[in-house]
């Protein structure tokens, strides 16, 4: 430590220092000055990400009690547990920006903050668990690996931990689909049906096309986002096309073709009207997911209150004990 703290910089100096750190691709830490817009953007993004982790527990948790083998049941419980852990890391990262988990949960429950729209689709068969692992966790990784270099330190560090676990989920999902695709006729049909239903929504996870993306440009300038939605979507398609071949399953997209000139796979256009509809609350499970969350929270209110009351009584007893 040096001897004396520097004099508080003026607003102008602070902005210049922040800009310099961003230009040098350095990490911004909670104690650093940051522009309000940067803070707001991060809170919105990290909160949305945290909400996605905990809402995402529902469609998969839906299959824990019915998993068809004990091994798959164990893998699925561990995965859903990981997602709860991801939620915890991310709410903690958001708390470094001056907003509490309780406030963020209230905003989620009031429908004032979003979570990833992918979780507004239903998990209808066991194969959906595999398809989610392969496609949804796969898309999440493609989105999140660049976030490990995000300019905000606590978020970047949370993403490093999370990405490691997400890649487990992706491999386990692939493995589960691989077994189904080589199983009985019914299992194979179940696997193909799940891929048919999850392929397009997984492409939508990267957000609208660049031309229509509301927040992209400023986030790129702040080193929060490193690649555009369309770049990430392309990267994802390039990864999953050969994987689908290895699985022996078909992606429901007749436009998929190798484009030697671009060095990438061409692919079709998702139904952006459907995307907007789900985003606005009109997806198959929007209401159900939010109601489930609200109910769990409301059902737990007396438990949280008891824990607080007990802690207070205990503290009072300790103080009385010391005074005596």
């Amino acid at each position: 430590m040096t001897t004396e703290a520097p004099a508080a910089p003026g607003a102008h100096d602070a902005q210049r220092r922040f800009d310099g750190m961003i230009a040098a691709d350095e990490r911004i830490e909670p104690r650093d000055w940051m522009p309000d817009g940067y803070r707001r953007t991060l809170i919105r993004q990290i909160a949305q990400h945290a909400h996605s982790e905990i809402i995402g527990m529902q469609p998969e948790g839906n299959w824990i009690t019915r998993a068809p083998s004990l091994k798959r049941k164990a893998v699925l419980i561990a995965k859903v547990q990981d997602e709860a852990g991801h939620g915890l890391y991310l709410y903690s990262a958001a708390e470094t920006l001056g907003v509490s988990r309780e406030e963020l949960l209230d905003l989620l429950h009031e429908g004032r903050q979003r979570y990833s729209s992918i979780f507004n689709y239903p998990t209808l068969t066991w194969a959906d668990v595999g398809a989610i692992g392969w496609l949804v966790d796969g898309a999440a990784i493609t989105n999140q690996v660049p976030l490990c270099r995000c300019s905000y330190g606590p978020y970047a560090r949370a993403m490093v931990r999370i990405c490691k676990e997400e890649s487990f989920h992706q491999r386990q999902g692939f493995d589960s689909l691989y077994v189904l695709a080589r199983g009985t006729g019914a299992q194979r049909r179940m696997a193909q049906d799940a891929v048919d239903r999850w392929y397009w929504p997984s492409l939508m996870m990267f957000g609208p096309p660049d031309a229509e993306s509301a927040h992209s440009e400023q986030s790129m300038a702040w080193n929060i986002k490193r690649f555009t939605n369309d770049e990430l979507r392309q990267r994802f398609v390039d990864i999953i096309v050969p994987q689908a071949e290895a699985l022996g399953l078909t992606l429901p997209d007749p436009d998929i073709a190798w484009n030697a000139e671009r060095g990438h796979y061409d692919f079709g256009t998702p139904d952006w009207d459907e995307f907007k509809q789900v985003l606005k609350g009109g997806g198959p499970c929007n209401r159900q997911r939010l109601e489930h969350r609200r109910r769990a929270h409301a059902d737990g209110a007396w438990v949280r209150e008891a824990a607080r009351a007990h802690a207070a009584k205990r503290a009072a007893r300790d103080t009385a004990g010391e005074a005596a």
């Binding site: 905990i54 527990m57 529902q58 948790g61 824990i64 009690t65 004990l70 049941k73 164990a74 419980i77 561990a78 859903v80 547990q81 709860a84 852990g85 939620g87 915890l88 709410y91 988990r101 489930h292 769990a296 059902d299 737990g300 209110a301 438990v303 949280r304």
Partner: peptide, 27 residues
């Protein structure tokens, strides 16, 4: 395991899943 995503707070979702997983491993 029925309680996945139904805990009174996130820490309990983690803890109950943890216990369910231990028991399943024993089973």
């Amino acid at each position: 395991a029925e309680l996945a995503a139904r805990g009174p707070q996130l820490e309990e979702d983690v803890a109950l899943a943890n216990i369910a997983l231990d028991l399943l491993g024993q089973a």
